[in-house]
Structure formats: structure tokens, C-alpha cells
């Protein structure tokens, strides 16, 4: 489980580089990436780490952008969804030995099992296996209209070099809340 309270405390100490809650729109994504890039140039870390953070952030935000408000959401709760479907949260924070990126968004409860399986599979693979898996999906996977064709999570796992932490919180039969925590180690 992800200890959000721990991060809340960290945030109060000023270890959060960026946090955001709201609608994910392309223009906003660009602004966020610009801000983050500027912030990263000012932090005292090797460019290798900065690049990793930026890369993973791009992938996470575009994941959110592509998957939020997907049409598979059932319309029984239309009203509630319209209000929240494009809304997400994310944070970039620094811990003692790593950077962490959190994302949180609503997904259809029906999609929980599939996503869980996908992350669990990625988490069972070591560096070499992740590389082969990535190459396999890159070469043989179907290109979705959204573009990535399922490479996003694999890429995030590869660049992070750590297991992906996640949680699903069922809000009701239709909607669940998905939190993903990505850790980028400093050494």
C-alpha cells in the first residue's frame, strides 16, 4: 500500500517538486512538462537522473491523458463521471534516496483486473526480461490509435529500475480509483 500520509508530511517539508489535481488537457500537459523541465535544471542531480524523471513523467502524464475518460466507462453514473472523468492527480517528490512520481485517476471497475495483471506481470520481470518484453511488444504489438500500444508501463518500469507500486480503491461497482507510485533511485 502507498503511504500517502507519509508523503503529505514530506510535502509539508518542501520535498514535493510538483503536485497537481485537475483536468488533464494537452495544453496543460505541455505547461506542466515545461515547468518540470525548468525545475529539473535547477536541482542538483546528475543529468542521467533528471532525464529519467522527465522521461517517466512524460510517459505517466500521457498515460493519464490517453486513458482518462475512456469511452468504456459505463453511463449509468453519467453525471458523476462527467464531473470527474478527466480529472487526475499527480505528484513528483523527493525522498532521501529516490524520486517518486505518483499518479491517481478514476478507472472503470471493470478495467481493474486487467490493469492489475499487466502491472503484476511487469513486476515479475528482471531488467533483461523487461528489455525482451519491450522489444517483443514494440515489434509485434498492435499499434493502438492512442499510439503507445501497451508500451507505456513497460517503459516506465524499465526506466525506473524498481517495482511499480499500485493500489486500487473501489468507489462503487462502476468506478475505482487507481494510484501508481514510481520510484527512481538516486544510485
Amino acid at each position: 500500500m502507498i503511504d500517502t500520509h507519509y508523503f503529505y508530511k514530506k510535502m509539508s517539508k518542501g520535498n514535493i517538486l510538483l503536485s497537481f489535481k485537475g483536468n488533464i488537457e494537452p495544453k496543460l500537459l505541455s505547461s506542466i512538462l515545461d515547468i518540470m523541465e525548468k525545475k529539473l535544471t535547477n536541482i542538483n542531480e546528475p543529468s542521467k537522473i533528471k532525464k529519467k524523471i522527465y522521461n517517466v513523467l512524460v510517459e505517466c502524464l500521457q498515460n493519464l491523458y490517453h486513458h482518462i475518460g475512456s469511452t468504456s466507462v459505463i453511463d449509468v453514473n453519467q453525471e458523476k463521471l462527467e464531473e470527474n472523468e478527466k480529472s487526475a492527480i499527480f505528484m513528483v517528490g523527493k525522498d532521501d534516496d529516490c524520486y517518486k512520481i505518483f499518479t491517481g485517476n478514476q478507472i472503470p471497475t471493470d478495467d481493474v483486473e486487467g490493469l492489475k495483471l499487466k502491472i503484476d506481470k511487469v513486476n515479475t520481470l528482471n531488467k533483461t526480461d523487461l528489455k525482451s518484453y519491450y522489444q517483443d511488444i514494440l515489434n509485434n504489438g498492435e499499434m493502438s490509435l492512442k499510439g503507445g500500444g501497451g508500451l507505456g508501463l513497460i517503459d516506465i518500469a524499465r526506466k525506473s529500475g524498481n517495482k511499480l507500486n499500485y493500489s486500487f480503491q473501489k468507489l462503487d461497482d462502476e468506478i475505482s480509483f487507481f494510484t501508481l507510485e514510481i520510484k527512481i533511485s538516486l544510485n
Binding site: 532525464k51 500521457q62 515489434n139 492512442k146 499510439g147 503507445g148 500500444g149 508500451l151 517503459d155
Partner: peptide
């Protein structure tokens, strides 16, 4: 390339 996303990776392939 300095950065590329997974959406570009397939196109580059």
C-alpha cells in the same frame, strides 16, 4: 534523440 515517448517508439520503428 534527447527524449522520446512510447507513442513515438512505434513510429520510429
Amino acid at each position: 534523440l534527447e527524449y522520446f515517448n512510447t507513442s513515438s517508439s512505434k513510429c520510429i520503428l
